[in-house]
Simulated scan of single mutants.
Amino acid sequence: MKVTVFGATGKIGALVVRRLLEDRHEVTAFVRSPAKLGVAAAAVDVVAAELTDEDAIREAVEGADAVISALGPPIDPFVRGTPLTDGTRRIVAAMHGTGARRLVALATVSVPDPRDRPRLLDRLVPIGIGLLIPGALREVQGISEVVATSELDWTVARIFAPIDVPANHTVRAGFLGRDSVGVEMSRADIADFLVDQISSADFVGAAPAISN
Rank of each mutant, 00 (worst) to 15 (best):
S110L: 04
A173P: 03
A100P: 01
A64F: 04
P126Y: 06
I210G: 12
G7T: 11
I163F: 05
A167C: 05
E26A: 14
T9I: 13
F6W: 11
R123L: 08
R187I: 02
S33Y: 10
D179P: 02
V156D: 04
V27A: 12
I75M: 14
E62P: 00
G128M: 08
I198L: 13
E62N: 12
L106W: 02
T170Y: 07
I57D: 02
P134K: 07
A93S: 13
S211F: 03
A188G: 13
A56M: 13
A60R: 00
L152C: 02
E50Q: 12
D55G: 14
F6S: 06
A105K: 05
L37D: 03
A29Q: 11
I129G: 00
V61R: 10
S180Y: 13
R115W: 13
V67Q: 01
G87S: 09
K11I: 11
F6A: 05
A41C: 03
M185R: 12
T98H: 07
P112D: 10
D164K: 12
G205R: 09
D179S: 11
I127D: 14
L194P: 02
L131C: 12
M1Y: 03
A29S: 14
V92A: 01
F193D: 07
D116E: 00
E184N: 12
L132E: 05
A66G: 13
D189P: 07
G142T: 14
A41Y: 05
T149Q: 12
V31K: 06
F175D: 07
D192T: 15
T98F: 04
G81T: 01
M1K: 10
D113S: 14
P77I: 12
V181H: 07
K2G: 11
V3M: 04
A70C: 15
D122A: 06
A188T: 14
A201W: 13
I198A: 10
K11R: 15
M95F: 00
L152H: 02
D45W: 06
V3S: 05
R138M: 13
L71H: 08
I91T: 04
T28G: 02
V46I: 15
A56Y: 11
L84R: 02
P114K: 15
P112N: 09
P208D: 12
A35I: 02
E151K: 09
R80S: 11
N212L: 04
A42W: 08
L71F: 08
D65S: 08
V104R: 02
T52W: 00
V125S: 07
I133M: 06
